[in-house]
Amino acid sequence: MTTTDRILAFITNRFPQAEISDVEDIFSLGYINSLFAMELVMFIEKEFTITIPNDELRIDNFRTAKAMTELVDGLRSAVV
């Protein structure tokens, strides 16, 4: 599975009724609260073995699966 697929799988596992693409704004779905935001960050950090620094915890980095993939790729390349 690609990074994007893994992120989408996490979201749809939590919200099975969500039919979202990699560029769809997940905040527009109306489900997202601070609890899920925390779960999402924890998932990404664990799944991809990275730590997301405070200055990357911006809404635009989490708006879509594509944006989250770019965040993961950027942080991974920074530690290589």
């Binding site: 601070s34 935001a37 925390m38 960050v41 405070n54 200055d55 915890l57 911006r58 809404i59 989490f62």
Partner: peptide, 10 residues
Amino acid sequence: LGPSGFASGM
């Protein structure tokens, strides 16, 4: 302490 904006709730 920590981020402001979107992530502050975390």
